[in-house]
Design a protein around this nucleic acid. Sequence first.
DNA 1: CTGTTAGCGCATTCAG
DNA 2: CTGAATGCGCTAACAG
Lengths: 339, 339
Amino acid sequence: MERMTVTVTIYDVAREAGVSMATVSRVVNNNPNVKPQTRKKVFEAIERLGYRPNAVARGLASKKTTTVGVVIPDISNSIFAEVARGIEDIANMYHYNIILSNADKKKEKEIRVINTLLEKQVDGLLFMGGVVSEDHINAFRTSSVPVVLCGTADDQNIMPSVDIDHERAAFDAVQLLIQNGHRSIGMISGPLQDPANGFSRYQGYKKALEEAGIELDEDYIRLGNYRYESGIDATDYFLKLPNRPTAIFSATDEMAIGAIHKIQDEGLRVPEDMSVMSIDNIRMASMVRPQLTTVAQPMYDIGAVSMRLLTKLMNKEAMEMTQVVLPHEIIKRSSVAPR
Amino acid sequence: MERMTVTVTIYDVAREAGVSMATVSRVVNNNPNVKPQTRKKVFEAIERLGYRPNAVARGLASKKTTTVGVVIPDISNSIFAEVARGIEDIANMYHYNIILSNADKKKEKEIRVINTLLEKQVDGLLFMGGVVSEDHINAFRTSSVPVVLCGTADDQNIMPSVDIDHERAAFDAVQLLIQNGHRSIGMISGPLQDPANGFSRYQGYKKALEEAGIELDEDYIRLGNYRYESGIDATDYFLKLPNRPTAIFSATDEMAIGAIHKIQDEGLRVPEDMSVMSIDNIRMASMVRPQLTTVAQPMYDIGAVSMRLLTKLMNKEAMEMTQVVLPHEIIKRSSVAPR
DNA sequence: CTGTTAGCGCATTCAG
DNA sequence: CTGAATGCGCTAACAG
C-alpha cells in the first residue's frame, strides 16, 4: 500500500491561512478568543492541508499527554479484561488514551513497567497487581502524577484505590452456605500471598465459620492457583476425604467451575450431593450447568470508577475520600441447595 | 500520598557529571562512542539525581515514540483479549508499548480512533475490526506509519494482514460433521456483513455441503450475534423444526455452548441426540460438558505474528509477503458423534 | 482578538 | 571520544 508522507505543521497552516501559529494553536485548542471569521479561515487551511496536530510536540510543550498508564496482571484473563474495558470507556469519555502493559503480578516486571510508563509522561497511572510492596510505593512516590490502585489496595491504605471488600464478600458467601445448613464447608483458596483474592477471601471464610461457631478444620482448606484445573484437583482431594464436606466455597468462579465438573465427573450431583459457591461472577458462571451461585464483583465498575477517580486526581480536584469500596452482591443461581 | 516532583533533565545530569548533554544522551542511548570512564561518571550522576529520560521529548527529537496503536473491537471479549496478549508480549519484547482503543466494530469510532492514534505519533498501527472499508483504507493511506490488519483482511488484499482462512476453517468443520454421517446440519452463523467471522464462515459451510452433494436448505441457517444467548435462540428454533438437523455447526464457540445447553435443557443429549461443533477454541470450550469439538483459531499467535510483522515494517525490512495466513486445527473433543 | 517570543527535553549534525 | 549548536512542533505567557 502506498502511503503519502507529507508532514504538515502548525506553521504551514498559519502561512496558508495568513495568520500566526498562535492563532492556529488557539483554534485547534478551541480557545474562544478567536474571531469566527479567522477561525473559519484556519479551519479551511487545516482541511486543505490535511493538518493533523502532533500530540508529542503538544505534550512536550504543555506537559500533558492525555494518556494514562495501566498496569494489569494479564489482559487475557477475563476478569481483568472486563476491568480494562471499564477503564478505557471512561478514559475515552474524558479524552484520554491508555497504554496497557501486562505485568503478570511479577513485582520486578511491575516496577519496570511503572517506570517506562512514567518515562512516557503519562498523566496518571492505574495499577492492578498482586502485592503492593514497599518498593511499589517508592516507585509511585517518585511519580509526579497521581496513581490509583484498582482491584487491590496497599495494606497501609495510603494510596487512592477502588476495590470491593474481599473479606466481606467471602464472609457473605460462606454465610449463605451456613444458612443453608452446611457445617462442613471445604474452601478452595487462592495463594495466601495474594492480599485481595487470596488472603482476604480466606479470612472471610474463617470469620464466617467462627461466627457460626464452626471449628476450623485445616483438612477443609486447599490452595489453588485460580485456574480451572486447580479447582478440579482440590475437589478431587475433598471428594476422597473420609468425611467429605457438603459444600465447597471457592475463592474464584473459575476454580468453582472446575469443582462442579469434578463432582459431576465422579457421578455426583450439584447441588444435591454437594453445593458449590464462589466469588466473581464471570460470564461463564451462568454458562455452566447448574448455573453457579456466586458473589458478584463489579469488574467493569471497578475499572470505570478508578479511572474516574484518576481524572479527578489529575485535575487536582479536592477529594474527601480516595479509598472507595464498591458493593458486592450475592447472585443466587442453582449450585447451592439446603442440606 | 506525598509525591516529590523534581524534574531533572538531561542538562542537570550533564552538569552533575561534568560533561555535555550530548554525552549524556549518548550513554542513555547506549552509543558505543563513549569512554568507559565518562560513561561511568554519567551513570553515577543519573543515579544520584534519579534522572528519568523524558520519552516525549525524545519522541519529538527522534520522531519515534516506540509505541504502537492497537484498534480492537472489545477488549472484554476473550477472543480479542487473547490476541491482545499476543500483541503486547511481542511488543514488549521489542520494547514497544501499546495504546489500546476499543472501537466496537463501529466504523465511525474506528476512524476516529485511528486518527487520534496517528496524532499521538505511534510508530505503527494494528487494526482489528469488522469491515475494512474504503474509508478505512483512506485513513490508513494518510498514515505515515505502517498498518497491519489483525484477524481480518481487506477484500482487495492490499494491506498487510495476518489471519486464518476462515472459510477453510468452516469448511473443515462441516466436513468433519459430514464424515460423521450427518446430512442435515444446521448452521448458526454470525452477521453476514462481518467478512471474517460472518460471511467467510458461512461460505465455508455452503461449500462443504456443496462438495458433499447436500442441498442447501435455508431453513437450516440461523443468524446469531456471537453471544451465548443467540446460540440458545437459534437452537430453540432448530429443535422445533419438523425435521430437525442431526448436527449444528456454529460460527463461534460461544454460540455453540449456548446450543449445547439448549439441547440439554430440552432433555436431549449431546452428542447422542445432536452433535455440535464450531470454530474458535476459546478456553470455555474445554470447560463445558460435553467438551466442545471445535476448530482452533490461534488467537495468541495472530496477535504475536501481526505485531512481529509490524516491527519488520517499522524497520523497513524488505518483505516478500505481507499477507500471512496462519493454520487452524481441528480439536476433536466430545460434542460430535457419528450418526 | 492577534502576533512575537521563548522554551518544553532531547537527538543529532557538525566540528574538533 | 566529546562539545556546541540547532531544531523537532507546539503551548504559553506577554504585548499590543
